[in-house]
Simulated scan of single mutants.
Amino acid sequence: MKKVLSLTLVVLLGLSCANETLPKPSAYLRLEYPEAQYKTFDTGFPFAFEKNELAKEIKARTLSVDSGSYGIDLVYPDLKGTIYLTYKPINNNNERLITLLKDAQGFTQEHTLKADAISEQVFESKEKRVYGMFYEVGGNAASQSQFYLTDSINHFLTGSLYFYAKPNYDSILPAAHYLQKDIKHIIETVKWKE
């Protein structure tokens, strides 16, 4: 009887070990945002562009009447983020252009302390006279994206993306990618007014 019980126990143990139990993969929150709907947005300033209708609040402000500097905030309440745009005239002043370029590039480089990586994408549209750079900032930096655009003669536009949350790259990544597409669309559709 002991032999039969021992044999049964050995067979049961052998059968129970045939299928390995695998742990379930970690689940991730899936965030889905609506398809972007773009419409031309005339700022009333020396430039226009197409903006996503998801930007519910638009705050336009004059930064300096004397210098002709303007700012526009495109607020995305559902994504808890804002794209800040700042326009400054160059007025055919080459020294001013160089200063504005250095400032824009330096502002991006300040994020290297917290950024894991900063990738650059050159933008050039000779037909529209729009030239610039788009920066994607990886890691826990305060701003996930920045850009600047110019015609090299009269206009200079900078933009940056900020979220109303502590910069935790993994948490804001889906919203950052969505808004980076909006930024690229803004860059591609900017038109200077003469």
Rank of each mutant, 00 (worst) to 15 (best):
K59T: 15
E136K: 12
T112E: 10
L157D: 00
E20L: 13
P77K: 00
N154H: 02
L63E: 10
I187R: 04
E120F: 14
S64P: 15
L74V: 05
D66T: 15
L22W: 09
R129N: 14
F107M: 02
S125N: 11
A117M: 14
G138Q: 14
K191D: 01
F163G: 06
D151P: 03
D42W: 06
K3W: 10
L97A: 08
Y164C: 13
E188H: 11
A176C: 02
Y169P: 07
K3N: 11
V137H: 00
K184R: 15
T108A: 07
F49G: 02
K166T: 15
V137E: 05
G106F: 05
S119M: 13
Y131E: 03
S160D: 10
L161W: 00
A60W: 03
K2H: 15
A115R: 02
S67G: 09
G138A: 15
G159H: 00
S125I: 12
N93T: 03
G44M: 04
I183S: 06
Y70C: 05
P23I: 14
F49K: 01
K24L: 01
Y70W: 07
F163R: 02
Q109L: 14
K184S: 06
V4I: 11
Y148Q: 05
D103L: 06
T62A: 12
D103R: 09
S69G: 00
F41L: 05
Y131W: 12
E110V: 11
R96D: 13
D66Q: 13
A36C: 05
G71V: 03
Q105K: 10
S64C: 14
G159L: 02
F123S: 04
K126Q: 12
H155P: 04
A36G: 04
I98W: 10
Y135T: 07
K2A: 15
F49Y: 05
F163Y: 06
K166C: 11
V65K: 12
K102L: 10
I83P: 00
Q144S: 14
E124S: 15
Y162D: 07
K102F: 05
L79G: 05
L9R: 12
V130G: 02
